[in-house]
């Protein structure tokens, strides 16, 4: 189970994608998420797939590793495909499966929507594969900076996210430890009516809350001891910097989008 719970599956490699500024990556990935919805025929999907696989290859991460990361979502992709296959009724009847007529329109739509899903998942997973969580939260802080004007606590939000990243693995281990400890003390997690099973959550939650809040308390104290007093005037060890390769990546990306719109009309 532990291996399926790898959080922020960052893979360190020496690739162009890794070296890009995290802000560039976030902006491009979000643009991609929007433009995927503009693909409308086989060619445009093929074009986007080629681009995404090209991008995946350029990270120098083994494709097998990336595919393993996508494991939990294969089910979702297949499910979406089947849902469309049976629900949509457009075009001609292609063939019957145990009394269910399959339409050509359904097949096309099913393939398109599951392709869309696949592309979205592949490209968005690229961000966490090539960027450390700290870089991501730093990038968010600078990208959302304009929101400060409307008094939105951008710095606080970003810091909160970094802190939680640090504690997700710790508290997950803690949960596992507590559930084993309580089971060994005879808390019955397995049998009985639903009501009792849900009540059995209490011996898990109470120690979890105590330990979680203790950690929060200690961290807050450590922050205060080191003189934390909000985002104003706080300097950074690693400043984010936009370089030539970022501009190049954006140009390549824009060319890809132009290509997409040309293929749309084919």
């Amino acid at each position: 189970m532990a291996s399926s719970l790898i959080i922020g599956q960052y893979v360190p490699e020496e690739s162009v994608v890794h070296k890009l500024d995290p802000r560039t990556k976030i902006v491009m990935i979000f643009a991609f998420v929007i433009f995927v919805f503009f693909a409308n025929n086989g060619w445009s999907y093929l074009w986007l797939t080629a681009f995404s696989i090209g991008a995946a290859l350029s990270t120098k991460i083994k494709l097998r590793y990336i595919a393993r990361g996508l494991k939990p979502v294969w089910f979702l992709i297949v499910f979406t495909f089947l849902l469309h296959l049976f629900v949509t009724r457009e075009g001609d009847v292609l063939f019957d499966i145990i009394g269910f007529p399959i339409y050509t329109g359904a097949l096309i739509q099913g393939v398109q929507i599951s392709m869309r899903f696949f592309l979205l998942i592949l490209v968005t997973s690229m961000l966490t594969l090539t960027t450390t969580p700290i870089e991501i939260t730093d990038a968010i802080e600078t990208l959302l900076h304009p929101l400060k004007k409307v008094k939105f606590p951008v710095h606080e939000l970003a810091l909160m996210m970094s802190i939680s990243l640090r504690f997700i693995p710790t508290l997950m281990q803690e949960t596992e430890k507590i559930s084993k400890a309580q089971a060994s003390r005879g808390v019955d997690f397995r049998t009985g009516p639903l009501k009792e099973r849900i009540q059995a959550v209490v011996p898990l939650l109470v120690p979890l809350f105590v330990s979680a809040f203790k950690r929060a308390e200690e961290l807050a104290m450590a922050m205060e001891a080191r003189g934390y007093k909000g985002g104003e005037g706080r300097s950074k060890l690693r400043e984010l910097e936009v370089r030539a390769r970022d501009y190049l990546a954006v140009v390549v990306f824009i060319l890809m989008i132009v290509g997409l719109f040309l293929l749309r009309d084919m």
Partner: peptide, 27 residues
């Protein structure tokens, strides 16, 4: 600082709550 750390802890708890059946499959 306490506000921030406690709110962060709730982000973590949400993550655990979303996947609670990993640890408590009977749920």
């Amino acid at each position: 600082a306490k506000d921030l750390t406690f709110s962060a802890i709730f982000i973590v708890l949400m993550t655990i709550g979303a996947n609670i059946t990993f640890w408590l499959p009977f749920l």
